[in-house]
């Protein structure tokens, strides 16, 4: 198996194995959460496993990630998150103090997100058979608004918005591994987004689609949107918010912030006419202070994401097949 950097390799794996095995119309949308019609209402339902090295990093740890990540998958389906289940896989010898630290931050994150962890499970595997601690969270939320979000609603002319500066989380984690001699004042952006989503949906009913920009970053999300909706996404490089410290670290590391994971940012596709209202509403919220329109949806070239560079060129921003390897010679 190729490493799951969140690009085309993991996408192919998901489609070839899991969709094939469990085929049904709800799964096939491959949305962040499944929306289920239950007893006259609609529930959102999702699960995610968390693997991160190191387990603790500036701004958070695996516990925050496991709560916020699942909360955000529910949030971007338009739901209000309610309950979580948590599963732990621990390596024999894992320090109890670390586990307590993780559960404490999960509790704090749950409280901040106004959700409750109502059930769970723990397994211990032999030493050397795990990376210390893996966490799986499953979440349920309720859709209280009549919104239906998804790629099917995306139209040429729509605006593409990000809810804040990108790349903070991924770069923080890379630097936190301690192998790199890089000092940077950055911390993870991990945060629960349903409050911000709610503010957005209030201000701009013309939201077409929301995606949290986790593995593979904004570039991967936009590629998935372009392909699923059969449209082009045109991004203006100068409009993409990136903190100077992240830009600096990315330059040194030779990575493109567009492909770096976020844990507290989403991408919204919004009716072009409501773009300004959407950004204004996001900026009124503490988690959306740097929200920006970064581009727009066009009809052609369908399926591609293009980046208008600062120099006026137009670069193809493709979905990565695996880890980024230089193509230049």
């Amino acid at each position: 198996l190729a490493h799951g950097a969140g690009g085309k390799a993991s996408r192919t794996l998901v489609e070839a194995v899991f969709v094939e095995a469990f085929r049904n119309p709800i799964l096939e949308t491959l949305d962040d959460a499944a929306v289920l019609a239950v007893a006259g209402g609609r529930l959102a339902f999702t699960t995610d496993s968390y693997v991160v090295s190191p387990l603790f990093f500036p701004g958070g740890d695996i516990g925050d990630l496991a709560v916020n990540g699942t909360v955000n998958d529910l949030a971007v389906s338009g739901a209000r998150p309610l309950y979580l289940a948590a599963g732990f896989i621990l390596e024999e010898g894992f320090p109890v103090a670390d586990l307590l630290r993780i559960t404490a931050s999960m509790a704090a994150a749950a409280q901040r997100a106004d959700v409750r962890v109502v059930t769970g499970d723990t397994k211990v595997v032999q030493r050397g058979r795990g990376d210390g601690c893996y966490v799986t969270t499953t979440g349920v939320g309720v859709l209280e608004r009549p919104v239906t979000l998804g790629a099917a609603h995306v139209r040429p002319g729509d605006a593409v918005v990000v809810s804040g500066p990108i790349g903070d989380h991924g770069v923080t984690v890379m630097l936190a591994r301690g192998e790199l001699d890089i000092e940077a004042d950055i911390s993870s952006d991990t945060a629960p987004l349903h409050g911000l989503v709610s503010a957005l949906l209030d201000a701009a009913p013309g939201v077409r689609l929301l995606r949290d920009a986790t593995r593979g970053g904004v570039a991967t999300v936009l590629n998935e949107v372009a392909r699923a909706a059969g449209v082009a996404v045109v991004v203006d490089e100068a409009a993409v918010p990136v903190r100077p410290a992240v830009t600096g670290a990315c330059e040194l590391l030779g990575i493109d912030p567009l492909y770096v994971a976020c844990e507290g940012r989403f991408v919204a596709v919004v009716d072009g006419a409501q773009a300004q209202a959407a950004v204004a509403a996001l900026r009124d919220h503490p988690l959306g202070a740097d929200a920006s329109v970064i581009g727009h949806v066009a009809a052609d070239p369908a399926g591609l994401v293009l980046l208008r560079t600062a120099f006026g060129g137009t670069r193809v921003v493709d979905m990565l097949v695996g880890d980024p390897l230089p193509r230049i010679c």
């Binding site: 330059e251 040194l252 590391l253 030779g254 990575i255 980024p324 390897l325 230089p326 193509r327 230049i328 010679c329």
Partner: peptide
């Protein structure tokens, strides 16, 4: 190549 394409 430290930094991949950046090293080029």
């Amino acid at each position: 190549m430290p930094g991949g394409a950046a090293a080029v």
